[in-house]
């Protein structure tokens, strides 16, 4: 395994009686785009605040490229951050904020920054006090993407963006990936996570319940199959991996498939299949399945 961009060991955070984060052990290799999923209050922002040294862990440790996350001066030379709720000094213009963040930050590619300003269509001559939520978010996104820091930590960065800007965001993540940057993306936008992330971690009630690639996640879960037949549908009862079998009219059967499809395909091949639709569950469905019960 290569270098870790971000690593935590038994990281926990307690706020009074609430255990906001419980024993998180996570390793995000350099160069990966990692999606961090979880419902509100699951502990995503708490994790990020601990990684950034904005809050102190109750126990456990975190590293940014093998620098202790508590050593902010060194760790933050290698990361850029976009908070979920961007607050700016109201009397400073967007350009002034970008200038400030570039000059105190980990180093900025100003040409790329100017390009991003164009792409995100941000009027940087306006005072930040006049910006909408989306425009404030754009300022932080532009500042972060323009740093070319090896690790980008993005906390729900697109919640205020319109679909066009969301597209620009995905492109910027793509550019970051091509540059070898690691992206740690906390998000609710499952379509976005599905589109840009290599792996996802799912957090529930302060605990990490799953870490897998998006493809693996789907494989772990069932596939929906609907087949129509020219003749009589075969009897699939008892075939390995087939569940939830039901007939949909005389010529159609629907079922869900878990694990290897080989047995089911053999059974289907013996009949006269007219059409077959195989659909993997979307991340959203997987996600909802996780949080359907005991969700917080």
């Amino acid at each position: 395994m290569g270098i870790s961009a971000l690593r935590t060991e038994h990281l926990s955070k307690r706020y009074g009686r609430l255990l906001a984060l419980n024993d998180l052990t996570l390793d995000v290799p350099a160069g990966e785009v990692f999606g961090f999923l979880g419902p509100n209050g699951a502990g995503k922002s708490t994790t990020i605040r601990l990684l950034l040294g904005l809050a102190r862990p109750t126990s456990g440790r975190a590293w940014v490229f093998d620098t202790d996350a508590a050593d902010v001066a060194a760790a933050h030379r290698r990361l850029a951050y976009v908070p979920a709720d961007v607050a700016l000094w109201p009397r400073m213009t967007g350009a002034e904020v970008l200038d400030l963040l570039a000059r105190i930050g980990p180093g900025t590619d100003t040409a790329y920054r100017d390009e991003l300003v164009q792409r995100f269509a941000l009027d940087v001559s306006k005072a930040a006090g006049t910006y909408s939520t989306g425009n404030r978010q754009k300022v932080a996104l532009i500042a972060a993407f323009a740093t070319r820091a090896p690790l980008l930590v993005l906390d729900e960065p697109t919640s205020g963006l319109d679909p066009l800007m969301e597209l620009q965001f995905r492109q910027a993540v793509g550019v970051a990936r091509d540059n070898g940057q690691t992206v740690f993306l906390s998000s609710h936008q499952l379509a976005e996570v599905e589109a840009v992330c290599d792996r996802v971690g799912i957090l529930r009630a302060g605990e990490l319940v799953e870490v897998a690639s998006v493809a693996q996640l789907r494989r772990l879960h069932h596939t929906e199959v609907a087949a129509t037949f020219t003749g009589t549908p075969p009897d699939l009862t008892g075939v390995h991996g087939v569940h939830g079998l039901h007939a949909d009219g005389a010529a159609t059967v629907r079922f869900t498939l878990n694990g290897s499809p080989a047995a089911a395909l053999r059974a289907l091949a013996d009949a006269d299949v007219a059409t077959i639709i195989v659909r993997e569950q979307s991340l959203e469905e997987i996600f909802l399945a996780y949080y359907g019960q005991n969700a917080r």
Binding site: V72, A75, H76, V86, A87, L101, I104, P106, A140
Partner: peptide
């Protein structure tokens, strides 16, 4: 007040220690 309004977050996410 800047801290409470989250304006310091972007500064402290830069290589700036609280001490500094």
């Amino acid at each position: 007040a800047d801290e409470n309004a989250r304006r310091l977050t972007l500064l402290l996410a830069a290589p700036v220690t609280r001490l500094r």
